[in-house]
């Protein structure tokens, strides 16, 4: 094969069938591969110093990321400093009093640690009791720096997967939307984005008890999901597959007859992009499919092939039509 054809392939100047032919040729022998390796590197180098990336934009994104992290650190330090100060003040001031400890604990409890994930970035957190939490994108988890004696209580907006360390003396409670989820030691997923129509708890292992102000506690079995619509007084329970339960943690997005708008909302969170629906019929579209660790480019391609939804990538927004 001529070098010229290979270079054309590298520059993406070939039609699909020719492209495949070149690829097969390259893969067919070590010698061919070697030739390609060199030409590919040379072509890559020729692209150096040509502006291909909006450096300013992604640098400012890094700065935002760093700033948030630093603020969190400072907040944490400030919180502990305040806590220590308050503790000392109480110890000095109320030494003879017997309920000193309770006051201190109460004061400390008011200062919650808050972890926030931006769009596009999920995060693992270890709570003071060693409970493991994976916080999905665009979510917020609040918890006290120390769990007090009788209860472990956290507050969630967004979505998180919990692996709770077993401690029968200390029940673990997640507050999310209208839902309260009470557990002893188990793994489960909670989803409660403010844009969602319901709050949803999915149990993976063990047992949990779901309730709200208006709903009596219901025990879930593994691989059951409990859904509570805002303002409703009844829980809906349904069976789910293991894959469905915690798909996002493995980088998968699974949709079953989901309105396109909801799909796009999830995609916006995951990939930190903006969508625009450019044609009214798409509002009625229900999407079923799985995106398994795809990049946004691949997702768009899948949408195009499977649902004949076209897209246009603009600077700020991706328009579907």
């Amino acid at each position: 094969m001529k070098d010229e054809t290979i270079v054309k392939y590298i520059r993406e100047e070939l039609e699909d069938n020719e492209r495949q032919e070149v690829m097969r040729w390259i893969a067919s022998s070590e010698e061919h591969q070697k030739k390609y390796n060199f030409l590919k590197a040379q072509h890559t180098v020729s692209g150096f110093n040509r502006p291909a990336l909006d450096v300013e934009k992604i640098y400012s994104r890094w700065k935002k990321h760093d700033k948030k992290q630093r603020q969190r650190k400072i907040l944490l330090r400030l919180t502990s400093a305040v806590a220590i100060f308050v503790l000392m003040w109480f110890v000095v001031d109320m030494l003879p009093s017997s309920d000193t400890k309770k006051d201190v604990v109460n004061t400390k409890e008011e200062k919650m640690v808050e972890v926030v994930t931006p769009r596009g970035i999920s995060r693992e957190i270890v709570l003071p009791d060693s409970t493991h939490v994976v916080l999905n994108v665009d979510s917020r988890l609040k918890y006290p720096p120390v769990f007090k004696d009788s209860i472990r209580e956290v507050f969630l907006t967004g979505e998180a997967y919990f692996e709770v360390i077993k401690d029968t003396r200390l029940p673990f409670i997640v507050h999310a939307g209208d839902m309260n989820i009470r557990v002893l030691g188990t793994s489960f997923n909670v989803r409660s984005y403010s844009g969602d129509s319901d709050t949803r708890t999915t149990l993976v292992e063990g047992t949990v008890e779901v309730s709200s102000d208006d709903v009596a506690p219901v025990k879930l079995k593994p691989l059951q999901a409990a859904m509570l619509n805002h303002g409703q007084t009844q829980l809906k329970i349904k069976e789910v597959s293991r894959e469905e339960a915690v798909s996002w943690k493995e980088g998968k997005l699974i949709f079953k007859e989901t309105p396109l708008e909801d799909v796009l909302e999830d995609l916006e969170r995951r990939y930190d992009v903006q969508f625009e629906i450019g044609s009214a019929v798409l509002y009625d579209y229900l999407f079923t499919g799985t995106f398994d660790n795809l990049t946004i480019d691949e997702v768009l391609r899948v949408l195009k092939i499977s649902s004949s939804i076209n897209y246009k990538k603009g600077k700020e927004k991706i328009t579907l039509y």
């Binding site: 692209g47 040509r50 502006p51 291909a52 990336l53 450096v55 992604i58 990049t295 946004i296 480019d297």
Partner: peptide
């Protein structure tokens, strides 16, 4: 950053991934 992006894009062939 720019030249590293050029490398990543060239081999991954995906803008978002490279970024």
């Amino acid at each position: 950053a720019n030249n590293l992006f050029v490398i990543a894009k060239s081999y991954l062939r995906d803008d978002y991934l490279a970024e």
